[in-house]
Each structure stands twice: as structure tokens, then as C-alpha cells.
Amino acid sequence: MKSLSDHQVSERLPVRKWIPTPMQIRQYAEASGDFNPIHLDDNYARQAGLGGVIAHGMLSMAQMAAMLTDWIGDEGIISKIDVRFEQMVRPGDTVLCSGFIRARSEKVLVCDLAAFNERDERVLSGLAHITIN
């Protein structure tokens, strides 16, 4: 198998598909301690002007991080991950997390990150640094 050090600039990373469910959002609220009702209570989220419950941004970011960790395995660590939440993610959306290698040095891969929903709207963009062990 190809090792991390063999990857070159402009290569695409393996895509992670994610479909959030109300149950996962509830589980994430419990695991993270973030019980903001915009994630859990549809009426509340509507009154707050969000049109219904939305997934935690940090849950979307965790999917992006999972895409990276699945790819890097034991060969490195995520030393930096920066994201911008561009569109709301709702239960039932199909989100594809993707990335490509923008630049690299001997020990660090700089990756551009983007996640799109099934309507082709970008829901998240970002950047990560992978430090090779």
C-alpha cells in the first residue's frame, strides 16, 4: 500500500459519505455536552429562524477529521484542522467530505477540505495539516 510520504500535490483524498440522523445528533449532543436546542428541538429551531433542526457544526467537522484519520491511519497525525461552516447541515442530508493535497514538505501535507450536500451546496470548507510520523 502507498505510504503517506508517497502522496503528491493535487492528489485527491478518499471521500467520506455522511448522512446525519436525528439519533446521531442526539448522541453527539450527549457525547459533547452541547445541548443547544437548535440541534434537538424542531419547533425551537424554527422559531430561531433556522427552518428546523440543524446538525452541530462540530459534528460536521468531526466527519471531515474522520475522513482524514481514515486516510492517514497510524502514519501521521492531524496537527491542524481549520474549517468554516458555510451552510447548515440537516438530518437526512447526504454530505460528501472531500479533500486534496495542496502542498507538501517532507513531513507535512497541507490539504484543502470541502464538503458538499446532495444539492451541490458547499456546507464546509477548510484546511488541514497532516504531520507524517
Binding site: Q24, A31, S32, L59, A66, T69
Partner: peptide, 23 residues
């Protein structure tokens, strides 16, 4: 619990966004 909720395997590593739970 965090790994399970986010859908990643639990191993000896802390998922990078776990620090977001330090609220």
C-alpha cells in the same frame, strides 16, 4: 462515547475534534 457518536472506530487515539467538548 465521542467516537461512537461521530461514527469513528474507538482506538488508542483521541479524535482531533474531541477538544471541542471542553466546554
Amino acid at each position: 462515547r465521542f467516537a461512537e457518536a461521530t461514527g469513528v472506530p474507538y482506538n488508542d487515539r483521541v479524535p482531533p475534534t474531541f477538544v471541542g467538548t471542553l466546554l
